[in-house]
């Protein structure tokens, strides 16, 4: 199963992405309210594995643990994700443990779950600068390391049309 998070408005989604998604995918889009992480670490030290904020995104940790591939489809905003996609990503903190491990000489997280996921990111947007592509590429690599992804892919799309070609 793939867990797909995207920031496309409904007509754009219908036009360009409805064909991308398979029946088994779980799709998270802009609909509904989402609260921003408040940095309380409750998902680590109060209700381990579950966010303490009461909305439909409190189980992002276990939803991530249930998928084989985590797919983000985001406008490239300054070389990172859009506010909505980054909001959802911030809420996945309970997926990892507060404990540390050393990888490539750097501190990273220990994993709460044994199994690994694949991480795939599609950035879209007209007129992305070279710097924005480079930053986005590094960002996905860094996220993949912290999520202990089994592998990651980054793709850039100048138009939504080219997103449609992706399967």
């Amino acid at each position: 199963m793939r867990l797909i998070v995207h920031d496309l408005a409904e007509p754009e989604y219908d036009a360009w992405l409805s064909g991308f998604c398979r029946e088994t995918d779980e799709v998270i889009g802009l609909e509904g309210d989402i609260r921003h992480c408040v940095g309380c670490f409750g998902c680590w030290v109060r209700t381990p594995g579950t966010c303490v904020l009461k909305d439909s995104y409190k189980h992002m940790g276990e939803r991530l643990a249930a998928c084989e591939e985590f797919v983000l489809i985001s406008r490239n905003v300054y070389g990172g994700y859009s506010p909505f996609v980054s909001n959802v990503l911030n809420r996945t903190l309970p997926y990892v443990l507060p404990y540390f491990t050393t990888k490539n000489g750097e501190t990273h997280h220990q994993q709460r779950y044994e199994r690994q996921i694949r991480f795939t990111v599609h950035f879209y947007g007209e007129g992305m600068t070279g710097a924005e592509r480079e930053t986005a590429q590094s960002l996905v690599g860094a996220n993949a390391l912290n999520l202990d992804a089994s592998g990651y892919t980054v793709a850039f799309h100048d138009t939504l049309v080219s997103l449609k070609e992706v399967q």
């Binding site: 921003h36 992480c37 940095g39 905003v77 300054y78 990172g80 994700y81 506010p83 909505f84 980054s86 909001n87 990503l89 911030n90 960002l139 860094a142 996220n143 912290n146």
Partner: peptide, 17 residues
């Protein structure tokens, strides 16, 4: 600001946009 997922926390990113 604090680093969130190797980037800017989403609420602050919204403010930047």
């Amino acid at each position: 600001f604090p680093l969130y997922f190797d980037a800017i926390p989403s609420h602050l990113l919204r403010m930047l946009v």
